[in-house]
Simulated scan of single mutants.
Amino acid sequence: MKGVLLINLGSPDSTNPKDVKRYLDEFLMDERVIDKPYLLRAFIVKGIILNTRPKKSAAAYKKIWWDEGSPLIVLSERLKRKVDDLTHVPVALGMRYGNPSIKAGLQELADQGVDEVLIVPLYPQFAMSTTETVLVKAEEERKKHFPEMKFTNIPAFYNHPDYVRVLAASIKDELEGKEWDHLLFSYHGVPERHIRKSDITNSHCKIDGVCCQTNSPAHQYCYRHQCFETTKQVVELLGIDNSKYSTSFQSRLGRDPWIQPYTDATIESLAEKGIKNLAVVTPAFVSDCLETLEEIAMEGKEDFIAAGGEQFYAVPCLNDNDEWVKVLSRWVDEWAITETANA
Rank of each mutant, 00 (worst) to 15 (best):
Asp288Pro: 01
Asp288Phe: 02
Cys289Lys: 02
Leu290Trp: 00
Leu290Cys: 00
Leu290His: 02
Glu291Met: 04
Glu291Gln: 00
Glu291His: 05
Thr292Met: 01
Thr292Asp: 01
Leu293His: 00
Leu293Glu: 01
Glu294Leu: 04
Glu295Trp: 07
Glu295His: 09
Glu295Cys: 00
Ile296Tyr: 01
Ile296Glu: 04
Ile296Ser: 04
Ala297Ser: 10
Met298Asp: 00
Glu299Asn: 15
Glu299Pro: 09
Glu299Gln: 15
Glu299Met: 10
Gly300Glu: 00
Gly300Thr: 06
Gly300Trp: 00
Lys301His: 06
Lys301Leu: 12
Lys301Asn: 12
Glu302Thr: 12
Asp303Ala: 14
Phe304Val: 08
Phe304Tyr: 08
Ile305His: 09
Ile305Asn: 08
Ile305Ala: 10
Ile305Gln: 14
Ile305Met: 08
Ala306Ser: 15
Ala306Gln: 10
Ala306Gly: 08
Ala307Met: 00
Ala307Leu: 00
Ala307Lys: 02
Ala307His: 05
Gly309Pro: 14
Gly309Met: 11
Gly309Thr: 13
Glu310Ala: 07
Glu310His: 10
Glu310Trp: 10
Gln311Thr: 11
Gln311Lys: 14
Gln311Ala: 15
Phe312Ile: 13
Tyr313Arg: 13
Ala314Arg: 13
Pro316Thr: 15
Pro316Phe: 11
Cys317Ile: 13
Cys317Arg: 06
Cys317Asp: 04
Leu318Ala: 12
Leu318Val: 10
Leu318Met: 09
Leu318Glu: 12
Leu318Gly: 13
Asn319Pro: 07
Asn319Lys: 03
Asp320Phe: 06
Asp320Gly: 12
Asp320Asn: 12
Asn321Phe: 03
Asn321Leu: 01
Asn321Glu: 12
Asp322Leu: 14
Asp322Ile: 13
Asp322Asn: 15
Asp322Pro: 13
Glu323Cys: 11
Glu323Gly: 11
Glu323Thr: 14
Val325Ser: 09
Lys326Glu: 15
Lys326Cys: 13
Val327Thr: 15
Val327Gln: 10
Val327Phe: 07
Leu328Glu: 13
Leu328Phe: 12
Leu328Asp: 12
Leu328Gln: 10
Ser329His: 04
Ser329Lys: 07
Trp331Asn: 07
Trp331Leu: 02
Val332Met: 02
Val332His: 00
Asp333Ile: 02
Asp333Gly: 05
Asp333Arg: 01
Asp333Val: 03
Asp333Glu: 04
Glu334Gly: 09
Glu334Arg: 08
Trp335Ala: 01
Trp335Ile: 06
Trp335Leu: 01
Trp335Val: 05
Trp335His: 02
Trp335Thr: 06
Ala336Ile: 00
Ala336Ser: 08
Ala336Asn: 04
Ile337Gln: 11
Ile337Asp: 11
Ile337Leu: 03
Ile337Cys: 03
